[in-house]
């Protein structure tokens, strides 16, 4: 069995284009290089078409960030948040498995080149990993003015996401940041925690501003994964596990 690792994801929830700072696709590429997957959900207004101009950025960021993107109307947000998170997990794990396969089978071989029966066996391994691996999700919420009426739905979707992920065998850590921050690029809304049900109380604190510095926000978010508090909390948990055992 492969060693159990921790998957790191940034989940960016936005409804428009960045208008300040560096290109968000570039910072997403940087995060991806650090082993962090960047997923993007673009929320559409009810009167918007399914393929609006100006939201091309959503797809670009996810492509550079090695993640999954999806445009969605507010009503379908809960299911989409989960689908995107899970798909990205499978995609990342499959990426690992594909790299291993290339080392074994030669550089031109990938999973699609295997016959369906063998592929089935490999997918079982990927599924096992997805169920048991630890996961860290940093949710990055755009709180520019137009997002205001969407925030209650975002809150519900995130609580729902935590119900789904906590039904897995593997452990989870969530944190929530908003951008633009009051003085910095991003503000901490909710510190790393295994559950999101306590989030209801902190959400009304979000205040909406005018600018959308998506690029700088992704860069800042990337650094939050290295924070010592996180390491400490994991270590503490491990000790507890040992004590419990």
């Amino acid at each position: 069995m492969m060693k159990k690792g921790t998957l790191k994801q940034i989940l960016l929830i936005t409804d428009g284009c960045s208008n300040k700072g560096e290109d968000p696709a570039a910072t997403a590429a940087l995060a991806h290089q650090q082993g962090i997957t960047v997923n993007v959900i673009g929320i559409l207004d009810d009167d918007q078409t399914e393929d609006p101009e100006g939201l091309q950025e959503v797809e670009d960021i996810a492509l550079s960030g090695g993640g999954v993107s999806q445009l969605v109307y507010k009503q379908a947000l809960s299911q989409t948040v989960q689908m995107v998170t899970k798909q990205a997990m499978t995609q990342t794990l499959q990426g690992f498995v594909n790299t291993e396969l290339k080392q074994i089978l030669g550089s031109e071989q990938s999973m699609e080149d295997l016959e369906p029966e063998k592929r089935g066996e490999i997918m079982e391994v990927v599924e096992d990993l997805g169920e048991t691996c630890d996961l860290e999700v940093l949710v990055l919420i755009d709180t520019s003015a137009s997002m205001n009426d969407k925030l209650p739905t975002v809150k519900e979707a995130l609580i729902d996401l935590s119900i789904s992920l906590n039904s897995r065998i593997g452990r989870n850590r969530f944190s929530i940041y908003s951008f633009p921050g009051k003085r910095k690029d991003i503000d901490k809304v909710f510190d790393w925690s295994p559950k999101l049900d306590a989030v209801s109380t902190v959400f009304p604190k979000l205040t909406s501003g005018g600018i959308t510095p998506t690029g700088p926000a992704i860069r800042e978010a990337m650094y939050q994964f290295g924070k010592k508090s996180l390491l400490r909390s994991f270590r503490k948990n491990d000790e507890q596990d040992i004590e419990n055992a």
Binding site: S78, Q79, E131, D160, S164, N166, S167, R168, I169
Partner: peptide
């Protein structure tokens, strides 16, 4: 394990009646 696929109306998580 965690339920792989579900539909909101039929899902007890959506109805706040369980995991």
């Amino acid at each position: 394990r965690a339920i792989k696929e579900y539909t909101e109306f039929y899902d007890r998580g959506y109805w706040e009646m369980g995991s």
